[in-house]
Design a protein around this nucleic acid. Structure first.
Length: 556
DNA sequence: TTGCAGTCAATATC
DNA sequence: GATATTGACTGCAA
């Protein structure tokens, strides 16, 4: 009956009480596909741009927005939100508040050990553990990720590494406690961070967590505590297990988040890890150089030739491609940070990290990053050029055939009009690169050496000028999602300017970003054009500065 | 189906 | 013992 009533006679948002709004929020979430499984989803695995869940929204509802909503100001921000935005703007506020307390996640983890993933409807308002990502904090994190401004992944990992080593803290502890990742993943992440704009929402999460952790004044202490506790637990267990003659259990002590729950003897099923012999690797690499994207037939042949399973060969190619790609990112970043020396006026340049972020900055950051390099080498070749430049000759040659499906480079070329929401622009942009068969690993390196890095400059520019483009883009997606953090907000609720305006600042503080970000926040869509124009001029100047003739295809 | 991102987890290396 | 490497897997998107 209530449903019927609500469906047929919905009250206007502004007339609804906190409680009354809830069903609509649920409906909105449901419509958004974010309220998939029953009520109170615990694990927000949603990939959507704006990640809400009922629980997360409850937070805002309970804390900030609603109450404040009574005030004209807030109500303004909260109310007219036909779409998810509304909730988002609300939640943003409380979320930021929530997270502004130093690192909630760590907090909890501190209390012993990460709560079970299973303790489901973490309905209490306690921030959940970082790992299982249950309850508020987990969701908050996702929201934060979705709304986070561009982060300098390279800088973050750098700082994290410093802190960890300075304090003699291990990756495993850090990963499991703070990031919810295993040691290997942490190592990988710290050693080869991808540029922000290349990351999916999921991929960004660890960086947001890291940033939060870095912002936490007690981060080290907390981790130290954890360390101690782990040690204690380990000792305890060791003792008890010794008496029980139950030797094992990995030293990963208190952190059996997730699957650990059931002590099943799963050992039996383990299949031995395949380890490729050097010759096999060589052969695969050679094959890769000829055909980064081998046909099934080729794979088959390779497999037989090397006496490997085809799946192994396939996996190897996948892994190799993606890892090579990442290597490139790193190189770009480094090249960027070197070559960028001069360009420092970027607002976002706060600190040396400017470099990395910078290069990542443009929507096509990739190209920006790599393109410039390429461009430098030759002239603005765009992705294609970039590809060419870096792809070893072999590739270039070999490429034609396997590029079968590679219309990508081309598509990249077309810069999406400002404000285009092309949800995949980023992805698309990416594509360009992969397509361009990455240079053979040991290959004579990409022609892109340290670049005068206009990219860096560009980064600055866009950062400042900001992505006019993005504002229109669907939150979370879009080419420039990177720096659109702010825009995204604007993209959300066209609603309240105030809200939009507010949000960035809180996010900034949250992430410890300089006002720059706030400044670049586009609060008024109407301004977009102007901004775009500004952007263009900035870009133009930057390009000139970089003594470049023609603009590479930066997509803003 | 295919490719990719993100991870895990076994193993190698430091 | 900590960290790096890497084969495999999952989930998603085109």
């Amino acid at each position: 009956g209530s449903v019927s009533d609500m469906l047929s006679r919905p009250k206007p948002w502004s007339k609804l009480t906190q409680k009354g709004r809830e069903p609509f929020i649920r409906m909105q979430l449901w419509l958004n596909g974010e309220l998939g499984q029953g009520v109170l989803p615990v694990q927000g695995q949603q990939q959507g741009p704006v990640l809400h869940s009922v629980t997360s929204l409850q937070d805002p509802l309970q804390q900030g927005c609603v109450s404040s909503e009574s005030t004209p100001k807030t109500s303004a921000s909260c109310s007219p939100a036909p779409e998810s935005p509304m909730s988002s703007s609300e939640s943003v506020k409380s979320l930021t508040e929530l997270v502004q307390q130093p690192c909630p996640s760590i907090e909890t983890s501190k209390d012993g050990k990460p709560p079970e993933p299973s303790d489901p409807p973490a309905s209490d308002s306690q921030p959940a553990t970082p790992l299982p990502l249950s309850g508020h904090s987990a969701l908050s994190i996702q929201e934060l990720v979705a709304m986070s401004p561009e982060l300098d992944t390279y800088g973050i990992t750098k700082r994290v590494k410093e802190v960890l080593t300075d304090n003699n803290l291990g990756q495993r502890l850090f990963g499991e406690t703070i990031l919810g990742l295993t040691q290997g993943s942490v190592s990988d992440l710290l050693a080869r961070p991808k540029p922000w704009h290349k990351l999916s929402l999921k991929g960004r999460e660890p960086f947001v967590r890291m940033q939060l952790w870095l912002n936490d004044p007690n981060n080290v202490e907390k981790l130290m505590d954890m360390k101690r506790m782990e040690k204690k637990a380990y000792m305890k267990r060791r003792h008890s297990s010794v008496s029980d003659s139950q030797p094992c259990e990995p030293p990963s002590v208190g952190i059996d988040y997730s699957q650990g729950a059931s002590p099943q003897p799963q050992h039996q099923l383990k299949k031995p890890r395949v380890v490729l012999a050097p010759e096999e690797k060589e052969a695969l690499k050679r094959a890769y150089q000829q055909k980064p994207y081998p046909s099934p037939k080729t794979i088959e042949e390779l497999a037989t030739k090397l006496n490997l399973k085809t799946s192994t060969v396939i996996n190897w190619f996948h892994n190799y491609r993606s890892r090579i790609r990442r290597e490139l990112f790193i190189e770009e970043i480094q090249a960027g940070s070197q070559g960028q020396a001069g360009a420092s006026d970027s607002p976002s340049a706060r600190s040396g990290r400017a470099a990395p972020s910078s290069e990542g900055d443009s929507c096509d950051g990739v190209e920006a990053a790599e393109g410039p390099g390429a461009a430098d080498a030759e002239e603005s070749g765009g992705p294609a050029a970039a590809a060419k430049s870096q792809g070893g000759p072999a590739e270039a040659a070999a490429a034609p055939e396997e590029r079968e499906e590679a219309p990508r480079p081309a598509e990249k070329a077309e810069p999406p009009p400002l404000g285009t929401a092309v949800p995949d622009a980023a992805a698309t942009a990416d594509e360009g690169r992969p397509r361009a068969p990455p240079p053979p690993p040991e290959g004579p390196a990409d022609g892109s050496g340290p670049v005068p890095n206009p990219a860096a400059a560009a980064a600055a520019a866009p950062a400042a000028g900001e992505d006019a483009a993005t504002s229109a883009a669907p939150p979370g997606e879009g080419p420039c999602r990177a720096r659109d953090g702010a825009d995204r907000s604007s993209a959300l609720p066209s609603t309240s300017a105030p809200a939009a305006a507010r949000r960035p600042s809180s996010l900034q503080s949250l992430f410890g970003l300089p006002e720059a970000a706030g400044a670049r926040d586009s609060r008024d869509n109407p301004l977009r054009k102007k901004k775009a124009a500004n952007l263009n001029s900035i870009i133009h100047r930057l390009e000139k500065a970089a003594s470049r003739e023609e603009p590479i295809e930066w997509e803003f």
